[in-house]
């Protein structure tokens, strides 16, 4: 193995990949969130469809899309690799373990939270991304694919909305730990700045997950119909 692969297969190296990909995925969340805010516009989805058309066809975005896939891929792969290593490192478990008395639930359950998010991601990609990219959607008034209508109809189903809300709660908890954890792993810990990083992370987790969760609820509760 070269020094490079050795570095990134070491326990700290893997964590560094987790943190860098994690922060990158956070930046994706911001862009995705900002774009999707157009769902709240009362224009029958015209702006949203223009946006989704742009995202689906712009060559730069299409290139970055592959980077995003790699980001998810590495994040998930390393998570699995680390979980396996860490389970092995414990060996025999405790009969009685009160870890809730020394740490936060969310910090200990990143794998579980991530798995919920992954399941959601598969459903989400299949329902929207796959159909928008490879399926047949009716054109809207601007002759763009009418993804908006698909969104609205999807969010009429209670179980689908429930899955979304559950996933966003998971995402919130995942970020609650993940954001500050990424900085710690990169060694960015300082008595002056760490409290700020933590506060920003908590705010980020709550705002991102709550806003995403608001989208399905908005349509399910019919708030889009209110003029």
């Amino acid at each position: 193995m070269s020094w490079f692969t050795k570095t990134f297969t070491s326990s700290i190296g893997r964590k560094i990949i987790m943190s860098i990909t994690g922060l990158f995925l956070c930046s994706f969340l911001v862009i995705h969130l900002v774009g999707n805010l157009q769902l709240f516009k009362h224009d029958n989805g015209a702006a949203f469809n223009i946006y989704s058309h742009f995202m689906g066809t712009n060559p730069i975005i299409r290139t970055i899309e592959w980077v995003l896939v790699l980001g998810f891929g590495f994040h998930i792969y390393e998570a699995i690799a680390l979980t396996g290593k860490n389970k092995k490192a414990r060996g025999t478990g405790y009969v009685v373990n009160h870890s809730e008395q020394n740490s936060e639930w969310t910090s200990r359950n990143m794998g579980l939270l991530g798995t919920v998010i992954l399941v959601f991601l598969i459903v989400h990609l299949y329902n929207f991304f796959w159909r928008a990219r490879f399926g047949e959607l009716d054109p809207d008034i601007n002759n763009n694919d009418d993804l908006y209508t698909l969104v609205v109809s999807s969010f009429q189903q209670w179980w689908y909305v429930a899955l979304y809300v559950l996933a966003q709660v998971s995402l919130g908890y995942h970020l609650w730990h993940g954001f500050r954890s990424a900085f710690q792993t990169l060694g960015l810990n300082h008595r002056k700045y760490t409290p700020v990083i933590k506060a920003v992370g908590y705010g980020f987790a709550v705002i991102v997950s709550a806003t995403f969760a608001a989208m399905p609820l908005y349509f399910f509760l019919g708030l889009d119909k209110i003029q």
């Binding site: 070491s10 700290i12 964590k15 680390l82 740490s103 936060e104 500050r180 954890s181 710690q184």
Partner: peptide, 30 residues
């Protein structure tokens, strides 16, 4: 195992070794 920044180590350390040290280790390693 690998550190996942849970913090139980520092919480249970009888002499109060701080998590700042783990960040420093990561930084030094990188």
């Amino acid at each position: 195992g690998a550190c996942t920044n849970i913090g139980s180590c520092a919480a249970e350390c009888p002499v109060g070794i701080s998590l700042e040290n783990i960040a420093m280790l990561n930084r030094e390693f990188l």
